[in-house]
Design a protein around this nucleic acid. Structure first.
Lengths: 336, 336
DNA sequence: CTGAAAGCGCTTACAG
DNA sequence: CTGAAAGCGCTTACAG
């Protein structure tokens, strides 16, 4: 069997309490003893069992990451940032893809509770806050990322400034000379999407009188393509379309191509997120870049602070997005 | 405090052993008692601590997934398949991105050991098998996925038939009428890449005398683009290029565009993997599809079998790839 | 069919 | 500065 704390205590001729103390840098141990014990630990290749230690100390140094789908590039990139910062702070990560289904959210929440995680990052849509009950009941720290839950006061969150992102998209397009716009948004239930649209529209409104902005809804590439076909076939075709995420924008690109339309010559398109997908399309997408890495790092720090009982710096951290201009936007070919 | 097994035992007027038995479906408990205890468990909302249970039973129902980078779409898609099947079988997943650095592999391996995982899936490159020592020493079950380690006899693996995939790419291109080929491969150290090239070349050789096949190396989009520029600028430009992964193929698409070349009219390109990226480029990529979902499911089953002490069905499971034909391949414009 | 008891490998007051 | 001892919440022979 592998070495336990008893083995090294015996070898060192001390009590297990002493070994535990040097392991955790607690208590006062004389320098010599400490170094002697360190050497023995090294020599025996002893590594404490995280399980036994969790049972007594109630800390597992493990976190849960609840997201809709790890195979979605946005969440995969977010997961990487979260993983890296977690690792730096000594935490491991359970990955939980929920497909935005409350049933799965709840079953993962119960599982994470049983496994004794120190905290949970929630990046998945949660219809009923009660899906998180297994966590909340046991006061396991939770922080939302990239989404918010209106009826969850007191739960901290880390988000992009979606309103500002939508506004940036509008300013870019306005600056290019566009005047006839459309938007393809996600579901009305998604708060981030609502904010993006609001920022976009408010900015247009401030720019003076403009033709009405058509709004369609989609989730993912396929629906994005369908809505694109609808919008692009209309007689008063918009010269610029703002899509609330890159997937929708990609669907739009595909729809436009089917219709023989050139992007950006016939229609400019702006996406949102700036995952790797945006750099790979043709033309590469102009898109509002979420600071995914900073979001991931911040959310972990927020959670760990809260798991370690320190006060939050803030309950809601809003990070600024920035516009990444690529080749899917240009001035309208016939101004007006 | 939350309820423990003692609380429900007291409530039910039985011993904790009895409660434990009904929890685990072990031992013989009279029907009435069993149902009575079930009701009490339900009512008290008791859920056993996975930590305490792991300490005694030595099983954590937790696995580690060691991959180069969760933000790489191939591994993200693989992770999703692994997660789903793991979940179905009752296992949670720690995600570990190693960037193919032995240092990180080793530190994650040590961490996973400490946390007492029941098994580890290794999809990351491992230069020295000794990086996995923390696992192997404790005989924690390991299975390789999508890569193999030649000096690791006895460690099971689940892979695509890379040779067959390379061959399929060659047959497709040959069938289209191509005769002047090039290949952009990954590093010679990557076994899967070697096999893909070998399958591709062998198939060409069997097709009769052909001009020599140029071979360049790249990893990722940027280098793929560079090698593409080199290949496409040469006087005897190939009419078809086989890339050992989709990322390289995407770089090639970008390089071709810069040179004003049309794909597939001026040059056909075949990728490998068929991640979401391949469906999003313009033109969409013809690519050898790895059965990512089946790979992920199989590797978990293989690992769980081994973790539960059952014999392997086989030590090496080889799944067949298939060619996904999209729009990046066509007959050469000037035959010959 | 059921229970008393040992044990898993740690941490943490507490006493000295 | 160091150790004896209790306790974390389970599982598992073993005895009856």
């Amino acid at each position: 069997m592998r070495a336990t704390i008893y083995d090294v205590a015996k070898e060192a001729g001390v009590s297990i309490a002493t070994v535990s103390h040097v392991l955790n840098g607690k208590g006062k141990i004389s320098r010599e003893r400490r170094e002697e014990i360190r050497r023995i630990i090294e020599r025996m290749n002893y590594q404490p069992s995280a399980i036994a230690s969790a049972l007594t100390s109630k800390k597992t140094f493990t976190l849960g990451l609840l997201i809709p789908d790890i195979s979605n590039p946005f969440f995969a990139e977010l997961a990487r940032a979260v993983e890296d910062e977690g690792q730096r702070l000594g935490y491991s990560l359970f990955i939980c893809s929920t497909d935005n289904q409350d049933r799965k959210v709840e079953s993962y929440a119960a599982l994470l509770r049983q496994k004794g995680v120190d905290g949970v990052i929630v990046g998945t849509g949660v219809d009923r806050l009660s899906s998180l009950a297994p966590l909340l009941e046991r006061s396991i720290p939770v922080v939302f990322v990239s989404r918010e839950c209106p009826d969850a006061p007191g739960i901290p969150s880390v988000v992009s400034d979606d309103y500002a992102g939508g506004a940036a998209a509008a300013r870019h397009l306005l600056g290019l000379g566009h005047r006839r716009f459309a938007v393809i948004a996600e579901s009305e239930a998604v708060s981030s999407s609502r904010e993006r649209v609001r920022g976009f529209r408010d900015t247009l409104r401030d720019a003076g009188p403009l033709p009405p902005v058509k709004l369609e809804r989609a989730v993912g590439i396929r629906e994005g393509r369908q809505q694109a076909l609808k919008l692009l076939r209309a007689p008063d075709r918009p010269t610029a379309i703002f899509c609330c995420n890159d997937l929708i924008a990609i669907g739009l690109l595909q729809g436009a191509k089917e219709l023989g339309l050139r992007i950006p010559a016939d229609c400019s398109v702006v996406g949102f997120d700036d995952t790797i997908l945006a750099s790979v399309t043709d033309p590469p997408l102009t898109t509002v870049a979420q600071p995914i890495e900073r979001i991931g790092h911040s959310v972990i720090r927020q959670l760990v602070q809260s798991a370690e009982g320190r006060a939050f710096e803030r309950e809601r951290l809003v990070l600024e997005p920035s516009l990444t201009v690529r080749a899917s936007t240009a001035p309208p070919s016939s101004l007006g």
